[in-house]
């Protein structure tokens, strides 16, 4: 049982604030992904949980025990590093056994665990090799096996797939998901790759400028972004935003289109819709086609809606040409509204 609780954790490096008062609770056996652009503080947060960085303030609890004053070795964690950190002077076997030897486990137990995790990660035939004789993907497997062999309560992963090439990344992603689901550990996984985040996570914590903007399930994060940043960061292409002004009958005027929206005191709000949530034709936003990119299953159309950039994902094969004027109708259940001042969802 290892629930992780991060309470009011902040981190400053001199004048620079890497983390502002972060709160996050991760349930036992939950797979939590910290997602954000580089420099958003996600790695710092992970390293604080690991004990590699001390927080400027706040508390870290693992399994009901306060750990922020403990060195990494006393936290019951294991970590997989971005560049794998496979010890070059030790064989694969000794790398996996390293932590077990530090725990002074009996020899048979060490051998049993090394063989089991090596088998799990399909590296049984590499046990006698050195890191220099391994490919990037194999090193990755060793690093994961080394962490799993510790049978930790918590596994921390810092962009473990980012140094692999695209195809290998896809393969390892699926494999990691299977292995970690079987290991019954709590996992914190840092990445900047939203596809990776969506595919792996039970919950995603989207981070921006040292704050957690939203922590929710992948579908929730995608469908109901809690803030404008989440909508613009997640999804490829990202959400479209258009200004909306208050109109009669509690409606909002978006590029001449009257839409029912939230009740707000503000005169102006922001209308948002995902590119795949619009249909061509009917009563819709007036759009002038600028660029057409056929992507196979569908076509990405970049338009101009009253001077604002607007992307739409339309069925491929639609007869559209650059310069065409279209009507793009937003699906009403998919429309989201944001407060332009606070950038929070309305």
């Amino acid at each position: 049982m290892a629930e992780i609780a991060i309470k009011g954790v902040a981190k400053r490096f001199g004048d620079f604030t890497a983390l502002h008062q972060v709160d996050l609770t991760i349930a036992d056996q939950e797979f939590m992904v910290l997602l954000g652009a580089s420099g958003c503080g996600k790695t710092t947060l992970l390293r604080i949980v690991a004990g590699l960085e001390t927080p400027s303030q706040g508390e870290v609890w693992i399994g009901g025990r306060r750990v922020d004053h403990l060195p990494p070795r006393d936290r019951g964690i294991a970590m997989v590093f971005q560049n794998y950190a496979v010890f070059p002077h030790l064989t694969v076997f000794e790398n996996i056994a390293f932590g077990l030897r530090m725990k002074k486990l009996p020899r048979q137990e060490i051998e049993r665990r090394v063989n089991r995790t090596a088998e799990l990660m399909h590296i049984e035939q590499l046990l006698k090799r050195y890191s220099g004789q391994l490919s990037g993907g194999q090193r990755q497997r060793v690093a994961v096996a080394r962490a799993l062999a510790m049978e930790p309560d918590v596994i921390l992963m810092d962009e473990p797939l980012s140094n692999l090439d695209a195809l290998l990344r896809l393969e390892m992603r699926a494999e990691l998901k299977g292995v970690l689901a079987g290991s019954k550990t709590t996992t914190i996984y840092v990445t900047h790759d939203q596809v990776e985040a969506m595919s792996l996570a039970d919950r995603i914590a989207v981070m921006h400028q040292g704050r957690i903007v939203q922590a929710a399930s992948p579908v929730e994060v995608y469908r109901n972004p809690a803030a404008r940043f989440v909508g613009s960061f997640i999804g490829n292409p990202p959400m479209n935003f258009l200004p909306a002004t208050k109109a009669a009958n509690g409606n909002w005027d978006v590029a001449g289109l009257a839409l029912s929206g939230p009740k707000s005191d503000r005169q102006k709000v922001e209308f948002a819709i995902r590119p795949e949530d619009v249909d061509a034709g009917g009563e819709g936003l007036p759009a002038t086609v600028r660029i057409i990119e056929p992507l196979g299953p569908h076509t990405l159309v970049t338009c101009d809606v009253e001077g604002a950039l607007f992307r739409a994902v339309l069925e491929s094969g639609a007869a559209i040409a650059v310069g065409d004027r279209l009507r793009l109708a937003p699906r009403s259940d998919r429309i989201r509204w944001f407060d332009p001042e606070t950038t929070q969802a309305l």
């Binding site: 060195p71 070795r73 964690i77 950190a85 510790m150």
Partner: peptide, 15 residues
């Protein structure tokens, strides 16, 4: 020598 090697050793139980 990458710092990560040292950090990995810490997370694996080393002082």
């Amino acid at each position: 020598i990458p710092v990560e090697l040292e950090e990995a050793a810490w997370t694996l139980g080393c002082t």
